[in-house]
C-alpha cells in the first residue's frame, strides 16, 4: 500500500505545491529557481521514457495484427515500415553515422534521407489531414445554422453579420451611407468584443475555478483516479 498509494500521494502533494509556492517567491529564496527548473526537466525525461513505452505498444499491437491477419493488416505493415525506416534514419542522422551526417541538410546542401521523408511524405500527409477541416467546418456550420428555434436564429444572424463584416463585401453593402463602409465591420467588432467575449469569459472563469478545485483535490489526495485507485 505504501508504494502504490502513500508514496504517489506524498509525491503529488510535494510536486503540486512547487508551482504554487514558487509563484509567490522570488529567486532570492534558496532553491526556488533550482526546484522550478528541475520539475520541468523531470517532466521531459519522464515523457521520453513513456514515449518508449508507447512505441513498444505500437510495435506489439501491429505485429499481433499482422500475425492474426486481422482486417486491415497491410496498413499495420506500412505503419511498422514507416516507423522503423524513419526512426532508423533519424537515429543514424543524430549519431552522424556514414552518409547520415546531419538531421536536415547534408554537407553538399542536399536533403538528408530523414529530412526528405519529412518534407515529401510526412508534411504533405499532415497538411492533407488539416485541410480536411475546411469541409468539416462547412458541414458543422450547416448543422449549427439551421433555423430551428430562437437561439439558433440568433446564432445564424450573428454569424451572418460577423462573416459578412469580415469581408470586403461587408464594407460595400452600406457604402451608400455616410461612413457606411465602417458600419458592418463596427457591428462585427462589437459582437466579438462584447457578447462573444462576455460568454467566453464566463466559461473561462468557471473552467479556471473548476481546474483549481480539481487541482486542490489532487494535491490533497482526495481525487485519486489518476492513480487508478479510488479507496480512501
Amino acid at each position: 500500500m505504501f508504494w502504490k498509494l502513500r508514496l504517489p500521494l506524498m509525491l503529488t502533494f510535494i510536486v503540486g505545491l512547487v508551482p504554487i509556492v514558487t509563484f509567490f517567491l522570488t529567486e532570492r529564496v534558496w532553491g526556488v529557481a533550482f526546484v522550478r527548473d528541475r520539475v520541468e526537466q523531470y517532466m521531459v525525461i519522464i515523457t521520453g521514457f513513456a514515449l518508449l513505452l508507447g512505441v513498444v505498444n505500437v510495435v506489439q499491437g501491429n505485429i499481433r495484427k499482422i500475425e492474426r491477419r486481422k482486417p486491415g493488416w497491410p496498413f499495420a505493415v506500412s505503419l511498422l515500415l514507416g516507423l522503423f525506416v524513419m526512426g532508423a534514419f533519424g537515429i543514424l542522422s543524430a549519431a552522424r553515422v556514414g552518409p547520415f551526417q546531419s538531421i536536415l541538410t547534408a554537407p553538399d546542401g542536399s536533403d538528408t534521407p530523414f529530412y526528405w521523408m519529412t518534407r515529401h511524405l510526412f508534411n504533405p500527409l499532415q497538411a492533407a489531414m488539416f485541410s480536411l477541416l475546411a469541409f468539416y467546418v462547412a458541414s458543422a456550420a450547416f448543422r449549427a445554422f439551421r433555423v430551428r428555434n430562437v437561439e439558433a436564429t440568433i446564432l445564424l444572424t450573428a454569424a451572418f453579420i460577423v462573416m459578412l463584416g469580415r469581408t470586403p463585401l461587408g464594407e460595400y453593402v452600406f457604402s451608400w451611407l455616410p461612413n457606411g463602409e465602417t458600419f458592418l465591420p463596427w457591428v462585427t467588432e462589437w459582437i466579438m468584443a462584447v457578447p462573444n467575449a462576455a460568454a467566453q469569459r464566463g466559461i473561462i472563469i468557471g473552467a479556471a475555478l473548476g481546474a483549481a478545485a480539481l487541482s486542490l483535490r489532487v494535491i490533497l489526495g482526495i481525487e485519486r483516479s489518476y492513480l487508478g485507485i479510488r479507496e480512501k
Binding site: 475555478l209 478545485a213 483535490r217 482526495i222
Partner: peptide
C-alpha cells in the same frame, strides 16, 4: 460538458462527500 462541468464530472460521478463539497466550495 463545458469547462467546469468537465472538472466536476469526476466528483459528481463518485458521489463522495469530500469531492462534492469541493464543487460547492468552488
Amino acid at each position: 460538458l463545458m469547462g467546469e462541468e468537465l472538472f466536476a464530472a469526476g466528483a459528481y460521478l463518485s458521489g463522495e462527500p469530500a469531492m462534492v463539497g469541493s464543487i460547492k466550495g468552488q
